[in-house]
């Protein structure tokens, strides 16, 4: 198969970027989208041009490194599939494919298709954890967790932190990402002591990073490679309101951590 690729090139954070067109030849249908880009890069490097920068690591859909808008869709056309698992058999021979990085103000472009998703880490740092020091854990079966709750917690915990939800949202909202972590820990008895504090701090950090709000486009849920439901955003809103209304933590909470 042969393709024409229109790819966003940008030298660094400060440089102006633009679309550049490439031809890639001898692509096989079983190759993944990233293997197709590898092939393009081999061809570029051997000609002495700089390869197109993109993030990738595990190439099995779990590390969350890949971050490509393919023909305007986060991770491309296949539902619940990251770009690394998207095979070229889903494209037509000779097609022109447009590839861009995640587009959102809190995700500055580092180079070409690589973005800085540090904002998501900072949301976790603000409260996406249970404060249990090493060595202070009780015996694991002391606290039974109903299977239903454990399953819900697991569903939300499957978030791989790729940021597709943000990239797909017209508002650049990180609510699905934040909701997934809040719901995960709120559904477990271990998460209960910090439940209010966590919801407030994570939401405040999310806002401080400059992510937009949710206006019910539901694009995030469509783009999520792990199929995390948008209904968890309602869960998060409930957690936040509950915390704000009922908890002294709301007023006592320290200001969100400043942007690094």
């Amino acid at each position: 198969m042969n393709f024409t690729l229109r790819i966003w090139r940008q030298k660094n954070r400060k440089a102006a970027g633009g679309m550049e067109t490439f031809k890639v030849t001898d692509v096989e249908a079983h190759m993944s989208f990233l293997e197709m880009l590898d092939l393009l890069n081999h061809q570029l490097v051997e000609k002495g041009s700089e390869p197109v920068a993109f993030d990738s690591d595990c190439r099995e859909g779990i590390c969350g490194a890949c971050s490509l808008m393919i023909n305007g869709e986060a991770h491309g056309p296949l539902k619940e599939t990251t770009a690394c698992q998207l095979s070229m058999r889903h494209f037509r021979d000779g097609e022109t494919i447009t590839v861009e990085p995640w587009r959102a103000e809190p995700f500055p472009v580092v180079r070409d298709l690589v973005v800085d998703r540090g904002a998501l880490d900072r949301i976790i740092e603000a409260g996406g954890f249970i404060s249990v020091g090493t060595g202070s854990a009780p015996e694991a079966n002391v606290i039974p967790v109903p299977k239903y709750d454990a399953d819900i917690a697991f569903q939300t915990a499957t978030c791989i932190g790729c940021g597709a939800c943000v990239a797909a949202c017209p508002n650049g909202s990180a609510m699905l990402f934040t909701a997934a972590k809040i719901s995960h820990l709120a559904h477990l008895p271990q998460g209960d002591p910090e439940r209010e504090r966590r919801a407030i701090r994570m939401v405040e950090q999310m806002d401080a990073e400059g992510f937009g709000g949710c206006t019910n486009h539901y694009e995030c849920g469509e783009a999520c490679p792990k199929g995390i439901s948008v209904s968890f955003i309602a869960d998060m809103n409930r957690e936040f309101l509950r915390a704000a209304a009922a908890s002294p933590e709301f007023k006592a909470v320290e200001p969100p951590i400043a942007k690094a």
């Binding site: 249990v132 854990a137 694991a140 039974p144 454990a150 995960h184």
Partner: peptide, 23 residues
């Protein structure tokens, strides 16, 4: 090995559970 499971459960790692709530 047992302490590791305890630590992870306390952190909220969603291990598979049986209907009785046990691991």
């Amino acid at each position: 090995s047992g302490n590791v499971i305890d630590q992870c459960v306390a952190q909220g790692v969603p291990f598979a559970r049986e209907y009785g709530g046990q691991l």
